[in-house]
Design a protein around this nucleic acid. Sequence first.
DNA 1: TTGTATGCGTTATCAC
DNA 2: GTGATAACGCATACAA
Lengths: 345, 345
Amino acid sequence: MSATMRDVARAAGVSVKTVSNVVNDFPHVAATTRSRVLEAIEHLGYQMNFSARNLSLGRTGMITLAVPELSLPYFAALSDEVIDAASERGYTVLIEQTGGQRERELEVLVSARRRMTDGLIFSPLALRGPDAPTLEVEFPVVLLGERSLHSRVPHVAMANVDAARAVTEHLLALGRRRIALVGTFDPQGAGAGSLRTRGFLEALTAAGLEHPPALVGPAEAWTRTTGAEAMRGLLDGGEPFDAVFALNDVLALGAMRVLYERDVVVPDAVAVAGFDDIEEGRFARPSLTTVAPGLPQIARTAVELLVERLTAEAGAVDGPGLEVVADFTMQPRESTLGRAPRPSP
Amino acid sequence: MSATMRDVARAAGVSVKTVSNVVNDFPHVAATTRSRVLEAIEHLGYQMNFSARNLSLGRTGMITLAVPELSLPYFAALSDEVIDAASERGYTVLIEQTGGQRERELEVLVSARRRMTDGLIFSPLALRGPDAPTLEVEFPVVLLGERSLHSRVPHVAMANVDAARAVTEHLLALGRRRIALVGTFDPQGAGAGSLRTRGFLEALTAAGLEHPPALVGPAEAWTRTTGAEAMRGLLDGGEPFDAVFALNDVLALGAMRVLYERDVVVPDAVAVAGFDDIEEGRFARPSLTTVAPGLPQIARTAVELLVERLTAEAGAVDGPGLEVVADFTMQPRESTLGRAPRPSP
DNA sequence: TTGTATGCGTTATCAC
DNA sequence: GTGATAACGCATACAA
């Protein structure tokens, strides 16, 4: 089929080793030899066989990124950043979608597909504490998420609690006192939702407020659609509220849509805040107050940590449960502040 | 390191070939032998080495999907669908981002990374007619886009012209007569933008209308930000218009945001329509009228065509420039129809 | 600086 | 049904 190194070697009148040296930019190759080889490569249209190289090297130069779903803007943006960061370091990214289902998340760790890559950046959604041992695999893994899940796997976390508290404090500072929560209410859990809920409750408590159970709009999956459903439930429930904290931006956008449909003015009647700072929120009407969890930092750090482990001497000991927490930034916008005053005509 | 087939063979007291047979579910293996091998596999925690298998098989079971950018909702949704469709057929997808830059699009065709996969699904943005020969590569390619670009490469296209005409007719049917275009105005070109522009102009011509050059809001890249800029330009230009056709949804959403900021009511003063039917548009305020290009069909067809070529007998002749055009569906919503009447309280 | 020989782990061929 | 053995194409000691 396609030309091999041997063909090139033959054509250039050198050995395979020399061709290999040229292809891999080894320093000690005579200029004339090099050019002769390059010429043969050009002439034959030689392309390296990566399967052979990978087999010989014992590595593939690929890493897996496992996310719930690419259609969710946050994970699309995450993938974008991870791909670029990995590319800069010479790695190629293979994306696996889990749908946020526990079964498929567990599957990622043992799947045939996973074995085609050198390591894994994993953003689990449904995995719980008891699943932690499953993460103790023999290939390098970097987790995106909370320490609680995994004892010894390095991970890059958001400041979920602090950021959620900041958002809630922002709502409180605006005088809102009855803040509904949109998303799963589970302050005891280990996932991002639970942590954000804890930050939310902490802020309320610090302000001397209680959170009425009726002010929860539950949403199993975090999508615009479930956010909308949750908001319908809240409005139909009759328990009054003057603000909404949605556990992420798409939930918030779904909720805002329903508020619009029900003629509830944002932020006058109800202020809305989300979490993630997806670009969509900046263009929403009203633009969405949210908190930026430091996505670029998260993506780059995750890639760095993984590559570090991939290139580490085989004997290198795993650092004990390294944790990196990204910096967050509040992004107050119209959905809580109201519309900027227009210059009068 | 990890156990190999030979280790398993030794442990089970059989030959490597037998292990291979078991692993690959070959029919002619004695039940007792099979279970013995499986036990050894379990015991040793054997995992197949894919680089070795790929080398031996001469294929990798991976395909490349090259898109401009995952952060753009349309391409995120496309990737989502392609990954799932490929997965169903036993293929893994490796995503390449081109940024819509010609350089990087050309690079995709020859990059080292590409050589790790068996084929390519390519959604080019900047490639032009003269680049067509570059697409004549020796590995299977399926293009997402227009025939014009490529003479002989199979491709899956949208009904860009027809769909754009339908959207424009929708605006005309609502009585709009001065329709601004947001996006690149280039009716002569070969890309999706040009085709949509042609459909747009066709509808206008059929209605006996001309399109004033001033009613173009140019946007090189198709993003919310450039859509917003384009709309600012249109409004500042002073040429009055009562509708906007944006060449895609994110452009439309960016434009709608600026209309809001400038107190131009949609659709009362200006109706807005887009193209792509991204989910975001359904939740926008007002919800965005658009046209659905048949994304699932496009993704599945592309994967099917590629897999077909990958599995075809080596001798099989390439069908001459096969073209599949997906079905489109108008999605009229609030941004042109106005808000559905609310039941009075 | 360059060549030779061997191994990487799997599949395929063909006997048995 | 199962086993020995030769590819697959490249990298890499080690030798020259």
